[in-house]
Design a protein around this nucleic acid. Sequence first.
DNA 1: TTTAACTAATCAATCGTTTGATTAATTTTG
DNA 2: CAAAATTAATCAAACGATTGATTAGTTAAA
Lengths: 224, 224
Amino acid sequence: MINFVRDKKKMEKEKTDKKDHILDVAERVFAELGYDGASTRMISGEAGVNMAMLNYYFGSKEGVFLAIFERRITTFQTVLLSIGNDDSINSWEKLDKYLDSYIDKVVTNNCFHIMLNREISKSKKNELTDQITDIIMKNVTVFQNIIADGIKKGDFNKDADQQLLVATIFGTKNYIVNTPHISSRVLGFDVLDADVQNDLLKPRFKKYMKTLLKAYLQNENDNK
Amino acid sequence: MINFVRDKKKMEKEKTDKKDHILDVAERVFAELGYDGASTRMISGEAGVNMAMLNYYFGSKEGVFLAIFERRITTFQTVLLSIGNDDSINSWEKLDKYLDSYIDKVVTNNCFHIMLNREISKSKKNELTDQITDIIMKNVTVFQNIIADGIKKGDFNKDADQQLLVATIFGTKNYIVNTPHISSRVLGFDVLDADVQNDLLKPRFKKYMKTLLKAYLQNENDNK
DNA sequence: TTTAACTAATCAATCGTTTGATTAATTTTG
DNA sequence: CAAAATTAATCAAACGATTGATTAGTTAAA
């Protein structure tokens, strides 16, 4: 009886593991070649499963894409939202915490964010880009509210351009993560290497981002 | 005789006009759907020419892509290079001129830059991404040299992170230009609209970028 | 007449998806 | 408990559609 239950659980686990494995591979292949450039044959081949399993599990190629999406997005957003809603800390600390969490997540899950941004950069709208836009806007709004609150409270320089500051923080991140061949040559190390990411990239990126925002957002007559 | 010459010139003109027209359409379609997402039938259809003409003129689909590339890249790079090599102005003025030229060009030719960055964001290397990387790196190097010179001369803060500053300037630009659905919602106007670009976006973007760089690059004991 | 410009038709290859069959696992029945 | 019935997972093969490219033939220009 006990054995029966354990075996059942084991099977369930292996099933979700398999699904997760497919999504891992698909995420990487989509990042490497783009949605249209990646074929279902290639994904299933590299994942070591029969091609029909993609449709069996996820319905379609787009279903695979959306499944990757749903897997990553939920936990990510709750973390950021909780920081935005934390009223026990001041604007500068909020900014710090937001940057720490955001940079950690984004650099680690770089395949996902490459994939995501490639699709959203299609200038022709469709159902998929609309969905992605809505989700991204949630993250943007959290950051924007932190800045807006800080300005209202007098912590940040009131002349700051909130909207373009959004472009700078997310744009700088995108540049590093989404164009790895370029940023690797600029920075002098491989930004796709996991060790490099943790030891060199993340701390340096965080420090830089905070210094930059401090220089721009600081009130002119404040002392350091 | 005169008529003959004029007609001949007219024909030549019409031919290059036709080629240029195809490249205009292809550039837009590539930006809308990506290289893999855009079919040769769609491009030729929207351009109003027979599909075989693409191969007749440009050899292949990739030939069309490269032709778009060559058309845009040459004039652009010489302008930026001339600014970088101009020794009659100081570092701050150089930065200003570079930003003015760069932002003008990039915002106006947004389709091209969307297309370009979509392809370079494929994390798997190939011949095409290598070519694009080399070309982009030329622009990056010009900017990097301006910063490095300014630091060496003592005009800019020596503690500035040159490499990540590159990520910020090009990243901020990319964010606005390459993800128009997002940046339009953030900014509150349509960044793809030509009038909006000239009247609102360009001047505001230039002003912001200069203020941001000034805040970050300024030596701490300098007065404004 | 010779060359260049252009077209309709067609090519093999690949695309995402579906199929019918087979095996393994689970539940129901006698 | 064991046999039968049912469900889930997996596979090779094939589907129609679309892809980029080429062909052979036509029109127009020099």
